[in-house]
Computed example of a mutant assay.
Amino acid sequence: MTTMPTLSLRSLGRTEILREGQPVKWCAESARDLVLFLLSSPEGQTRDEIIDAIWHEDPTARSGNRFRVTLHRARTALGSLESITEEYGAYRLSDDVLRASDVFTLYASLGQAESTEGDARFFSLSQAIEAYTGDFLPHIQADWAQTAREEHRAAYTRACIERSVLHCEHLHCDLAVRDLVAALRADPFIGENYHQKLMTCLSVVEGKYAATEHYRRFVKFLHDDLSDTPMPETVELAEQVKAGERICQRGEREDAPLTHNCPLTSDGRCPGHYAELLQLA
């Protein structure tokens, strides 16, 4: 058994695979594709599934030979024959390789958060959020990458939402807003109740105008992207906000800094005259 070199696999937001601190040298692009494909499927894939995903070919003697050569090149590039294992016909990255990836950090941290409470839970959620620096393999448009991309984005979104709840419990309203904004920016299609929650938090942190502005953007988003309208309780909440009613009985606005983040725009900025009003608030 060979000694596994120190590896680092970054696939969230950027793609970078390092061996002993240096970029891995690939004999062929297909070897790199194999490693990335297996990173998207930690449970492993059969030879035929790999051939179909990477080369879009049927299993033949020719494609089988191509697979064997690519497998050897991938193992050599990672520095160990044990870097990619085979069991019951399924090929997968070894546990050591997987543990060197940011994807592993994301899910390991979420797992720790589920089994802990208090400060330990907050720390684990923060680790998960920090591990996610962007979409999984953003340069690859293959179906297998897109499927994993959506799963990892959902995991990140869940971490942001769960941490926002902890912030809310400790009356850190401005931080709760930031995490909710991050979650909704990553996936504005999540439950409407989270948009309601953001409206409520914004009414505490930035006031009724910011909360109303988010409601209006959400209504436009529903109309333009889903051909839908907000739920009656969302409309009712918006009317309460506009009327200046105190929605959240826990939050205190006086000491909370303004955040000015719009979750439905790519850069978080609110265009037009509203942005100027916010800067003067």
Rank of each mutant, 00 (worst) to 15 (best):
I50G: 11
G21I: 08
K25F: 14
A142C: 11
A155P: 06
S266C: 04
L202H: 05
G44P: 07
R19E: 01
S30D: 13
L18E: 06
V24I: 14
E276Q: 11
L264N: 05
D48F: 02
A113V: 15
E151Q: 15
A275L: 12
E245K: 06
L98Y: 08
Y209M: 04
Q112T: 13
A210C: 03
V103W: 08
G111F: 07
D102Y: 01
T157Y: 00
P271V: 13
T265S: 08
G244V: 04
A182E: 01
L198W: 08
R158P: 00
V235W: 10
I50T: 12
E87F: 13
F123S: 12
W26C: 11
T85G: 07
A142W: 14
E43V: 03
H152I: 01
E169F: 13
F189C: 08
A131R: 02
D119T: 08
R92P: 03
P23H: 04
G111I: 11
A148H: 09
L34H: 10
V205K: 12
D135R: 10
T212S: 04
L137S: 01
E16K: 11
V97Q: 13
T234Y: 03
E151Y: 10
A142I: 15
L222K: 05
S40V: 14
L110R: 04
T147F: 09
E162R: 01
A155C: 14
K197W: 00
A100E: 10
Q141D: 11
L7V: 03
R68M: 07
Y88A: 15
S80V: 07
C27A: 15
I247G: 09
A148T: 09
L278R: 09
L12N: 04
D187G: 04
I51K: 11
L175Q: 12
A113R: 02
L180A: 01
D52G: 08
T234P: 00
L198T: 05
C262E: 12
K208P: 00
I140D: 00
E130R: 15
S83A: 15
A100H: 11
E151V: 07
D143I: 06
T259C: 03
A108T: 12
P257K: 03
T15V: 15
P188D: 00
G44Y: 08
S124L: 11
A131I: 05
M1V: 05
T259M: 05
T3Q: 10
L98W: 10
M1E: 15
L110K: 02
L264I: 01
T147P: 01
V103C: 13
Q127N: 13
S80R: 02
Q22G: 01
E86H: 07
D187F: 00
Q45Y: 07
S30V: 13
G191Q: 03
G13T: 05
R178F: 00
R216K: 08
V241I: 09
T133C: 06
F67Q: 10
G64Y: 09
I17V: 10
L222I: 02
D96Q: 13
T6G: 05
R149N: 07
S266G: 07
E276T: 04
E49F: 02
A120H: 12
K25M: 13
